[in-house]
């Protein structure tokens, strides 16, 4: 493992760049969360507010930079990268799809009013 020390050139510049990027994205999220622009709330896309989609996309964007730059996934072999990232993404998407569909179904059942719950 002596090779580790040999070919690592310093990438301090890149680290700070990524930090600035993550900070800017977080600030944008917080500002959007506080002012909540009306048109982003009123527009819905695939049964979710546009604002929430923006939050989720920005979060995934941040997650990408943390994993790729800070955890140095970009420097790992294709095999390691795929076995970690693809496995995770596939299982998480599956889980989210199943649970949210079910949650929405339960909501419809509640709403149809056969059971009183607001008393």
């Amino acid at each position: 493992m002596a090779h580790d020390t040999a070919h690592h050139e310093s990438n301090i510049g890149r680290i700070w760049k990524v930090f600035i990027l993550l900070s800017v994205v977080t600030i944008v999220e917080v500002i959007l969360g506080i002012i909540k622009p009306a048109f982003l709330i009123e527009t819905t896309l695939i049964s979710m507010k546009l604002l929430n989609w923006i939050f989720i996309i920005l979060t995934i964007y941040k997650a990408y930079y943390i994993t790729w730059a800070f955890m140095h996934m970009e420097g790992e072999t294709k095999g390691l990268r795929r076995s970690v990232v693809w496995t995770g993404i596939f299982l998480i998407c599956y889980l989210i799809f199943i649970l949210l569909t079910e949650g929405d179904y339960v909501y419809e059942v509640f709403k149809s009013g056969y059971v009183a719950w607001d008393f």
Binding site: I92, L95, I96, L99, L100, E102, G103, D104, V106, Y107
Partner: peptide
Amino acid sequence: SGFLASYGFSRFKFI
């Protein structure tokens, strides 16, 4: 993800 997805489930249930 399991925790956050079940949070999503409960939230969709009481959307």
